[in-house]
Amino acid sequence: MKLYDYILSPSCYKVRLMAALTDVRIDIRAVDFHPGAEHRGAELLALNPAGAIPILQDGDLILTESSAMLVYLASKVDPRWLGGGTAEEAARVQQWLSFSHRLTASLGGARLHEMLLRPGDIAGLQAQGTAALRELEAGLVEQSIRGMRFLASQRATIADIACFPYVALAPDGGVSLDPYPTIRLWSRAVRSIEGFIEMPGIHRLHDLKPEPLPETSGF
């Protein structure tokens, strides 16, 4: 399985994270997205005419939508990540998978503007991002009243993996996460899942490791 990947792309990170959590080995093919704009070059346009990454290739299967990649990895290796024990849960997974595209457009757009100088209406993107975060916060509050820590269920599903990256990186686009206590709890729960990996901009949870004994002996 080959992932056309950019280390700073939250959408690519969704796939790397899902692969890490399900213990799937993927071959990373690094794409010079910035500054090289390689995703708009002939080789990658042949795989994805939309000129976007990630692209996941497995045999003659070519996927260009990150949500589909999450479904593929989960179905292949560990279907528990698909959620969907009940009609309600199945619908919630789809609800948040679709919602995740709004996060990409708003928070992702603001991040590209503020960090990598892409054009855009920054005030509008940030306002849409804030609206999406409020909706996510409200949804997570209701889940917690139902006794559930994650978006669709008691355990994490692909819906959580689809929403987590752009939310965690919202401050990169100048959108504060400070006003969302329930998102903070959820984010911590996602980051505490066995096998979780970071991407640049998401720091290690150092508190998960005990205080190391000091080493003063020099090298």
Binding site: I7, D32, H34, M115, D172, P200, G201
Partner: peptide
């Protein structure tokens, strides 16, 4: 190392500092 990997290594480091 490929040029792209060299770029990404340094971008990783700097974006970790950015926050």
């Amino acid at each position: 190392t490929s040029m792209t990997d060299l770029i990404h290594f340094q971008q990783t480091i700097f974006v970790q500092d950015r926050s």
